[in-house]
Design a binder for these strands. Structure first.
Lengths: 137, 137
DNA sequence: TTATCTGTAATATTTTTTATTACAGTACAA
DNA sequence: TTGTACTGTAATAAAAAATATTACAGATAA
């Protein structure tokens, strides 16, 4: 199973999408039920990507600045795992004296590429607005 | 990143596909460069799924019994991660008092379902025969 | 000027993954 | 019929990754 970062980002952005004003990272963390530092780390990436803005100091917090209709899940996925080669698997160096050992990393990298491209295409079909409108029905 | 089980299965089956006779789990493990017990665990699943046969005792080992042209990567993926909800992420129980907290698990489960279906479709486009014929070119 | 935020680093804890050890069961071959 | 070389699997240990905690500097509103 993947780590929870992608799920955390979706949670964060969904929560922001239904919130009118600034909400705090502690509030978000208590909704997710995880540590607020994890939330702030993801927020840092979301901010860098231009999805949210933050207000430091008293009564500060986080606010969504990108239209949730235009936030597709592939964007979040890319923000989370960019360049990670999620499906390539093994980190051990395979035996170069074996035909498969010599080639497996390239094979896996190819598989990873095709799979990831398909994945992003699928994720692009759903926006945060879709997700939160579903739950309002 | 995912664990290495999917990569290990692909490695195992590819190696078997280019081998004429029985090969041992130790030999496979040395090509992958991982512990032989991990290999045997995957082999146990591959055997259950009817892809390989094993011969115990001296001079024994493992042999492929399914045509590598008919072994598509989605089959291996399913054998490896069946029912794991790979993309659903977080295991913590989210806050049921929050609208998003109440709904996130269902949302993620839906996303997981769509993504996984697309993934399997993509993986079905590549067979083990494709993989090993590529590397022979 | 105090209380409440963000931002981030450093560290600790927990969980997952991988490796190791051990040994019973099988079968070939001398 | 006995030694050797396999599979199969359980139990445990070690390593790595994920998550949580603590700490504190900097910002800002009241």
């Amino acid at each position: 199973m993947l780590n929870s970062r992608f799920a955390i980002q979706i949670h964060i952005v969904s929560l922001l999408a239904i919130s009118e004003e600034y909400i705090t990272s502690e509030f978000i963390a208590s909704s997710i039920n995880c540590n607020a530092v994890l939330v702030r780390k993801e927020l840092s990436l979301l901010k860098k990507a231009g999805l949210v803005t933050t207000q430091e100091g008293n009564n500060g917090g986080i606010k969504l600045i990108k239209n949730p209709r235009k936030i597709y899940l592939d964007e979040l996925f890319t923000i989370t795992y960019d360049g990670a080669e999620l499906f390539a698997g093994n980190k051990n160096t395979p035996n170069p004296l074996c035909t498969i050992g010599r080639n497996i990393n390239l094979m896996m990298s190819g598989i990873n590429g095709r799979v990831e491209a398909g994945l992003l295409k699928e994720l692009h079909r759903t926006s945060i607005a879709d997700l939160v409108s579903d739950l309002k029905k």
